[in-house]
């Protein structure tokens, strides 16, 4: 029993971080139909920012988190203006963004490698290696803080989307772009803002990642497939679906890792993806595609 709780706790901690990583990806896809393969590489970018903030100035990564989010959001605005804005009306936009973001991912990886070398890094505030014990259940503080922070940020994101005027506009644009434009929503501005928010979330996730995982520039390849599987499973563009998928699969993956072997734990995501595509291709919270 204790072992079950133990594994579940570890799974939830990681689930929070994956949920935050996936939420930004899902938002950007939902509003802009951009399949952002560069998302995880930008998370690594955020992680480096937090790492150097700690290494050079001793700033706690949790304090660096808003800075990472803002810097990455600004990068997002820049990328959007340079790469994504002009072709937004093309019929093959999503397909083009797959290639484009693949290229951006490699460029970001290369730039990070050139600047910071390919050494494995991990931000090491005191809590990163510390733990609580509740009974015999071991709770690593780093994962706990990262998980809680992720949940808080996702909660804020949800409230923002639910109640703010821009949130209304973002949801409306996701669900029916033409109708939103018809009602006076500036859909280009909404696209830019959601892209900035999505990439900003990557920055925030990066700050958390920096003390939960050890990372290096090419690490994002490990995540891109996992995150894509979360987004597809949740239902393309459904942030709630992505979050639910992240938590449930991380917990399952933790059990698989413990009981079957850690080599198999990543497989959980792909096996689940396979099953979802087989039995519910629109994803957990997705709309059934219309047969037109």
């Amino acid at each position: 029993m204790e072992q079950i709780i133990q594994v579940a706790v570890l799974g939830i901690g990681l689930g929070g971080v994956f949920a935050l990583m996936g939420a930004g990806l899902s938002l950007v896809f939902g509003v802009m139909r951009i399949v952002n393969l560069a998302h995880p590489s930008l998370i690594i970018g955020g992680a480096y920012l937090a790492y150097w903030g700690f290494r050079i100035y001793g700033i706690d990564p949790l304090i660096m988190l808003p800075v990472c989010a803002l810097v990455l959001a600004a990068t997002g605005v820049l990328f959007y203006k340079v790469f994504f804005e002009r072709d937004a009306k093309s019929a093959t936009y999503s397909e083009m963004t797959v290639l484009l973001t693949f290229a951006i991912a490699m460029i970001v990886e290369g730039a990070l490698g050139a600047a910071f070398s390919n050494t494995q890094r991990v931000t090491s505030p005191s809590y990163a290696t510390d733990a609580f014990f509740i009974g015999n259940v071991f709770i690593p503080k780093g994962q706990l803080y990262a998980g809680i922070t992720s949940i808080v940020i996702i909660g804020l994101l949800a409230a923002f989307l639910k109640f703010s005027r821009l949130g209304y506009a973002i949801r409306a644009t996701t669900q029916n772009r033409e109708a939103a434009a018809l009602l006076g929503v500036n859909v280009n501005m909404v696209g830019l803002m959601s892209f900035a928010i999505g990439i900003g979330l990557a920055g925030a996730a990066g700050a958390l990642t920096s003390f939960v995982f050890s990372f290096f520039p090419a690490k994002h390849w490990e995540w891109v497939a996992v995150l894509m599987s979360l987004v597809v499973m949740g239902g393309m563009g459904s942030i709630l679906g992505t979050v639910v998928a992240a938590f449930s699969l991380s917990i399952v993956a933790a059990f698989v890792g413990t009981w079957i072997g850690s080599t198999w734990s990543t497989m959980t995501f792909f096996l689940a993806l396979f099953l979802v595509l087989l039995f519910r291709p629109q994803g957990l919270f997705g709309e059934k595609p219309e047969l037109v």
């Binding site: 005027r165 506009a169 409306a172 669900q175 029916n176 033409e178 109708a179 939103a180 009602l183």
Partner: peptide, 20 residues
Amino acid sequence: ERALFPKMTVRENLRMGGYI
């Protein structure tokens, strides 16, 4: 195509009607 937002509530759809 009616131009509704299917995953927004009736009230939210009406709010979008007065977006401007």
